[in-house]
Simulated assay, not measured.
Amino acid sequence: MTIKLIASDLDATFLRDDKTINEPLFREVLQKMNEQKIQFIVATGNHLQKVLEYFRNFEGQYQIIANNGAEVMLNGQIQNVKVVPTAALKNIVAITEKYLNDIAVGLAFTGQSKTYMLKTQAQIGHTFQEASKYFQNLILIDNLEEIVEPVLKATIVLNRHETLYMNDLKSILGNSVHVTTSGYGAIDIVNSEVNKANALAYIAKALNVDESDIMAFGDGLNDMEMLEYVGHPVAMVNSDPELFKHDFDISVANNQDDGVLRTILKSI
C-alpha cells in the first residue's frame, strides 16, 4: 500500500467526544508519517480558527481543509476560497424561518474573519450561548446587509426535520449551493463547488499526489465525496450507517479510542 497523504475529519472521527486529541499518540504517528514523507490533512466542517485552536501544539505539521472545503490552508497560506452567493443568503433565512420550532442552534454565517448571526436567530433557545463557545468572533446583526465580507458557509443545527429542511433548501436554491450534513442535526450550506473531495483534489494537485495514494477518514455524510475520491477510504466504526453501504475500510476503533491514529499505525 502506497500512501502519500492522510486526510481526516474531526468531529466524531479524529477528535474524542470531549473535543480533545491524544497528543502523545499523535506525535508518535506524525513522526512515523514524517519518516515516510506522508503529510497529514485536517478535513473538517469547522472554521479555520477552530482548527488552529485544536492543533495549537502542532503548528506547521499539517494542512487544512476548513468549512467543508470552502477554504484550504496549504503551507500556511489560505487558498482555493469558495463563497456562498450573496443572492442565496436571503433565501436561506426565509427558508429557515419556516423551521423556527425545530432549531437547536440558530443560523450562523461564517466569513474568513468573523461569524455573523441575526439577532432573531441568536434569541432562539440557547443559541447565543452555544454559538459563542464555537465561534470566537461572533457578531450579532439586525439584517444581512451588515455582513461586510464574503460568506464561506451558513450553519444551523436542528432538533428534528433535518431532511425536510435540506430538501427545501435544495428545491428553492437548486444548484447555486451545496447542502450537506455531518449528522447530529448540523447542516452546512456552502458554495455549489464545495466539498471535501474537491478541496482535497486541489491539495493533491498542488503536491503532485495521485488520489490512489491518499487515505481518508470520516464518519458523516459530509465525508462521503472525500471517501469516494481517495484510494484508501476508511469509515469510522461509529459512522453514519449510510457509509457502511459503501466499500470502505473500517477503522480499528471509534473516535473515543483514537481510531484514526491507531488505524494509521497499522497501515503505514
Rank of each mutant, 00 (worst) to 15 (best):
I268T: 13
K170S: 10
A197C: 06
Q31P: 00
P233E: 13
D247I: 09
L100H: 09
M33E: 01
K266G: 00
A201E: 14
N67I: 00
T110F: 11
Q63C: 06
E71Q: 08
L15M: 14
M224H: 09
G106N: 14
I6Y: 05
E59N: 07
L89W: 13
F58G: 02
D257P: 00
L10D: 05
I92R: 06
D219L: 02
Y165N: 06
T115I: 02
I21F: 06
V234D: 03
V42W: 03
E23H: 02
R262K: 13
R262P: 00
N75A: 04
L152T: 09
S171A: 15
K37D: 14
Y54V: 15
L30W: 01
E130D: 08
L227W: 14
R262G: 02
F14L: 14
Q256K: 06
N22Q: 14
V81H: 04
L5H: 10
T127S: 14
H126D: 07
A154L: 12
A122M: 09
Q123C: 00
V177E: 07
T180M: 15
I3E: 04
Y99H: 06
A204H: 05
I189Q: 01
D18G: 02
D142P: 04
Q61I: 08
D257Q: 15
E193M: 01
S182Q: 07
G259Q: 13
F248H: 14
A216H: 08
I95S: 03
E23T: 06
V148W: 05
A131D: 07
L107G: 08
G259V: 08
L261T: 02
A88V: 12
T2P: 06
E193D: 11
A122H: 03
F58C: 04
N208Q: 13
L100A: 14
S267Q: 11
T163L: 12
D213V: 01
I203M: 01
A87G: 06
N198F: 12
T155H: 15
L25Q: 01
K266C: 03
V177C: 11
I6P: 00
I189V: 14
V177T: 08
I264C: 02
G45K: 09
E242M: 11
V209M: 05
A70C: 03
Y184P: 00
T181M: 01
T263S: 06
A104R: 14
F217S: 04
Y202K: 03
L221Y: 12
S192I: 07
S176G: 01
I103W: 11
V157N: 09
I268Y: 02
N57H: 15
D18T: 10
Q112S: 09
D17Y: 06
E97A: 11
G183D: 09
N143H: 15
